[in-house]
Amino acid sequence: MTADDHELLSRVAGTVRDQIAPAVDDEYARTQAFMASVILQRLAKQSQLADKHRAAETADVAALAYQLDAAFAQAAAAAETEAAVPADLRDAVARMRQRSSIAAASEVIEALYVWGPSHPVASAALAAVRGVLRRDIDRRMEIAL
């Protein structure tokens, strides 16, 4: 999509909402037309914010992976064994960093719950992940509302 695509989508949404939908007699079809305009408006917003959101996601994931790696290294050093942090968890963080995707944080969270969220290191790690998830959902809400 080009930088102007969101403007085109937004204009189409407005045309459907203001001109097409009101001219439809059948109630079901009219409702569907209004729904189409809402969907087009959301897609326009998504298109407009896509690059900005992607950049923020990449930065957030990189910072989170760095923070988790550091915390796990510190925990391993304190316990004098790398096994102090579950291998599945360390692997999940590595995959998240590699994919540069917040979606991959699901595996990290699952591994944290397997480890036990009451463990102090796991608890701190979960808090760090949640901070990134809050920013992600706030970005998504810019489109959803």
Partner: peptide, 12 residues
Amino acid sequence: PGHPILADLIGW
């Protein structure tokens, strides 16, 4: 595809 918040919620 789900979302990590859902994974967190289910885990909790």
